[in-house]
Amino acid sequence: MTSPLDLTRVLEEEGYLIDKEAATTLFLALALEKPCLIEGPAGVGKTQLALALARVEKRKLIRLQCYEGLDLSKALYDWNYAKQLLRLQLSKTEDWDQIKVDLFSEEFLLSRPLLESILSQEPVLLLIDELDKSDEEFESFLLELLAEFQVTIPEIGTISSKTKPVVILTSNNSRDFSDALRRRCIHIYLTYPSLEREISILSTQAPELSNRLAKDVCEFVARVRKLPLQKLPSVSETIDFARALQSLHQTELNYGELMGTLSVLLKYPKDIAKLEERLRKWESEAAQRR
């Protein structure tokens, strides 16, 4: 890839539509070989972007889903204790030094996603998903990996990667990261797509929709996003909503006939009630105009 435009094009071939600014930033992150931190509200396609990028670059995807309590032994490496015990029982040699060295060699190392991405012979894309869910201490483990693409295991030493992995971190912004982590990453903020982009996303993701319905749905969703709701509808919910209308054999969006389908779009009862109230108002407004 030689330019952001190129990147946009190949991502589009994989079915991911990226806006210009994000494309430039992502392109620079790839060019600088730096990790890329993608932030934004839930459901705007942060993980999808990483998946599409892996397909485009033909890299093997290694995914680490973060959660509270995730620690070094689950993310980076662990010693295979059972195997070590077997080794001890089988060993006939009296030479302690030799056993000691053997026991802590790569053979007895269980590699978890992070180590796996470092050790891998083929090019990989490491996706660290929802980093904000992890504990703060975990962030510090990552620093060495993010800056130098290497990990240090006390018993063995430093292992650095042969093929520099592309690292993508995603976050829902429920917790702030330390400056140390942010400094090492290139930062992309994804937000809800513009109307035109959402329409084209909808038509690529759900090609069975008529143009009319796709346009109507996107306009409606854009309108809903302006309301003060607890959780705004995301892109994936827009797609679900459009599919729901399609399966109800609707060719266009009628404010009056939406009750009951709204639960596809919004996930909180309070939000639905709020929107239903608004719908009545919009309906009468639309009727007046006609």
């Binding site: 620079l28 992150a29 600088l32 932030e39 930062h187």
Partner: peptide, 15 residues
Amino acid sequence: LSEKQIIKSVFIHRP
């Protein structure tokens, strides 16, 4: 590429 875009991408670490 536009200079502003480059500088913005690299310098900004939080939204």
